[in-house]
């Protein structure tokens, strides 16, 4: 059976998605084109004199390796910017998926059809996967394109690993937006809940480098599993993927359970 709800969601967001893709592609091109000049500059020595707390927050001295393409991309793209951009796009989708449709009133029109609520959530989840996947693919392709031009030597496999990790991370926060929207029907809360959690997850990973008692807690942060261990240089253990996959799947499942039970008040 055709995924008609997925199709509607993607078609209606077509323009936004193209805008996101162009923006991300442009950012990747811009950022990578600086690499040769950074590599040959004295920035590496300047970083050595940064306060150690600052370095610790961003993942220790290893996080500031500007001499290799991998190290550079890790700092400039994969530690925060790319995951954050993908996450924002995913949250935007997740907010619109249920809370947005309910606030606008189109959910009534949709659910009056012979379709289960479960299926509606599932098709929306597929649409969000397509959206996040497409944007992660843009990052992947643009870096492959830029690689020879600026001599990044990043490696296709590690690049794919890092992009997939960022995509799963973003998807999980998008799913949280859907869940919050399913539970509250409020676009504001659907936006605020995952945004706050992303911020908290980011801070926990950074502060864990400074405050030793926080260290165990970083395991609770999805950001740690997706980006905390420098996937571009080191790859990503299967366990990390399992955690990220499990988190995404559990959040979508929770969304189904919550949405099926919810009274849809107009």
């Amino acid at each position: 059976m055709a995924l008609l709800v997925t199709e509607r969601g993607l078609r209606d967001r077509r323009r936004g998605l193209v805008g996101w893709a162009l923006g991300i592609a442009g950012y990747v091109v811009l950022q990578t084109s600086f690499f040769p000049s950074v590599q040959s500059s004295d920035l590496q020595r300047a970083v050595a004199s940064y306060p150690k707390e600052l370095k610790a927050f961003f993942g220790g001295a290893q996080a500031f390796n500007f001499s290799t393409g991998r190290g550079y991309l890790e700092v400039e793209l994969f530690s925060l910017i790319i995951p954050a951009l993908l996450t924002i796009a995913a949250i935007a989708f997740g907010v619109g998926a249920l809370a947005g449709e309910q606030e606008r009133g189109t959910l009534d029109l949709l659910l009056a059809n012979p379709i289960t609520r479960r299926r509606v959530v599932a098709e929306k989840a597929v649409g969000m996967g397509v959206t996040v996947g497409a944007l992660a693919a843009v990052v992947f392709v643009m870096l492959l394109v830029m690689d020879p031009a600026v001599d990044l030597r990043v490696g296709v496999v590690n690049l794919a690993i890092a992009c997939l990790g960022a995509a799963l991370l973003a998807y999980g926060f998008g799913a949280l937006a859907m869940l919050a929207g399913a539970a509250t029907a409020s676009r504001t809360l659907a936006l605020a809940a995952p945004a706050a959690l992303f911020t908290a997850a980011y801070l926990v990973v950074g502060l864990a480098g400074l405050v030793s008692w926080l260290e165990p807690f970083r395991l609770a942060s999805p950001l740690y599993h997706a980006t905390g261990t420098h996937p571009l240089s080191n790859g990503l253990p299967a366990a990390n993927y399992a955690v990220l996959f499990g988190w995404c799947a559990a959040t979508v499942l929770a969304t189904v359970l919550v949405f099926e039970r919810r009274d849809l008040v107009r």
Binding site: D12, R104, D108, A112
Partner: peptide, 9 residues
């Protein structure tokens, strides 16, 4: 079904 004050895509 016709919702009250219907919202359409």
């Amino acid at each position: 079904y016709l919702p009250g004050d219907p919202a359409l895509y």
